[in-house]
Amino acid sequence: MFALMQSTRTQSLHLTVDAATGLKAVIAIHSDRVGPALGGCRYLAYPDDESAMIDAIRLAQGMSYKAALAGLPLGGGKAVIIRNPHVENRAALFEAFGRFIESLEGRYITAIDSGTSTVDMDCIALSTQHVTSTTAAGDPSPHTAMGVFAGIRATSMARLGSDNLEGLRVAVQGLGNVGYALAEQLHAAGAELLVSDYDSGRVQLAMEQFGAHPVASEALISTPCDIFAPCGLGSILNCQSVNQLRCAAVAGSANNQLTNLQAADQLEARGILYAPDYIINSGGLIYVALKHRGEDLGTITAHLARIPLRLTEVFAHAQAEKRSPARVAESLAERLVYQKGV
């Protein structure tokens, strides 16, 4: 674990257990030098404790890069609560997690993420003020989706020569809060939707409301489309899966879509444009960070409008340098993060 922390330049890793509630949690702080480390709290089952820690570390690094590229004075962090199928009192568990956050004395601010809700954040808020995405603050998912939608238009312009999405086939993998909101915006823009999700009810709803075409989850990645939009969990793009893609571009909301940069190079070699995840999906972070700071919706919306501009900048550099946008984005993020001493 120390080797991974060193390779990602992660500052610290914090673990806790609470016998009374069954809480087992990890908080990874990649950086808090220019501001508190802000990042969501995942509540998921993991095959083992090490997998949970690795997930937290890698996601925390991504949050530092996301904050830097979004121009936010924050570091990056991530929390993982290891889900137990037999939790007696969920509210008490999240209140205990709030006490864990409070013990870090403001170094980390948490927010909603996979497996958690605004109600969970309300429970955390009973123990600490270092939390956002509460019921009062609002769910950031719609803002993440807004940023991804704008990013898809920028990606379409860069790869297909137009940001008009009417008639484009977009494959949305994952219809959670962000994926479904994205599908709604794509439908309104006239895109033809191919969708998959392990929740058949969400797929059925997308079929009824957006005229979406259902595709089995394991088959969606190889289904011909213009844009493939991963909106579930990460590590979807590896050397094997990239070979299966039949699309012009990949642009979606999932974190850590690439298993490694070699997969990004493979996308580049195949002529598939990749929209770096921690740029295109930064709308949620922008919303929770600025909302926590007390900014109004107009300021937040103006900041969200920078997402496609940053993507376009990265695409231009990638084309000029004949490199993957993922490598260009990482170089830019590291320059911003480490030169600033984040």
Rank of each mutant, 00 (worst) to 15 (best):
A20D: 12
L193G: 06
H130S: 13
E330D: 15
L182H: 03
G138T: 04
A145I: 04
D197N: 10
G211V: 00
L44V: 08
L175G: 01
A25C: 01
L311V: 03
Q319F: 14
E166A: 13
T110P: 11
M146Q: 11
L69V: 03
S331K: 11
T128D: 13
Q11S: 11
T21N: 02
A137I: 07
D199E: 05
I54Y: 14
L182P: 03
D55L: 05
G271H: 11
A3F: 13
L168K: 15
D197W: 05
P276Q: 01
Q244L: 15
L38F: 14
I124F: 08
H86D: 14
I27K: 07
S222K: 14
L297M: 15
L336F: 09
S200N: 09
I152M: 10
H317N: 12
R335S: 09
F210I: 02
D32Y: 09
G167M: 06
T155S: 04
S217V: 12
M207R: 10
A263S: 15
T155R: 08
R153L: 06
G115Q: 05
A181F: 00
N255P: 05
C123E: 15
G179R: 00
A79N: 10
L13A: 02
H303S: 13
G35C: 13
T110R: 06
L237G: 08
R323C: 04
G75H: 05
T132S: 11
A216W: 07
V242M: 04
E218R: 07
I236S: 04
A67T: 05
S31W: 00
P276V: 01
A189Q: 04
I236W: 00
L233R: 09
A188W: 06
R327Y: 00
A229L: 06
L59A: 08
M1L: 12
D277S: 09
G22S: 05
A264M: 00
D265E: 14
L220E: 02
T223Q: 15
G298L: 10
F149Y: 14
M146H: 13
T10M: 12
A136T: 06
A318R: 06
E313Q: 15
R323T: 04
E313Y: 13
S200P: 04
A20Y: 07
V80G: 04
D113Q: 00
R169Y: 14
N89D: 15
P308G: 03
A326R: 01
I236P: 00
D265L: 05
A70R: 12
M5F: 03
T128W: 14
I152E: 10
R310K: 14
A263F: 07
A305V: 01
A92C: 04
Q129S: 14
G40W: 11
T8S: 05
G161A: 03
V26K: 01
L233D: 02
E208L: 13
R293W: 14
A263G: 11
Y180V: 00
S103Q: 07
G176H: 08
I221K: 03
A70T: 04
R9A: 13
G35Y: 11
C231V: 08
F2R: 15
F315R: 06
E321D: 05
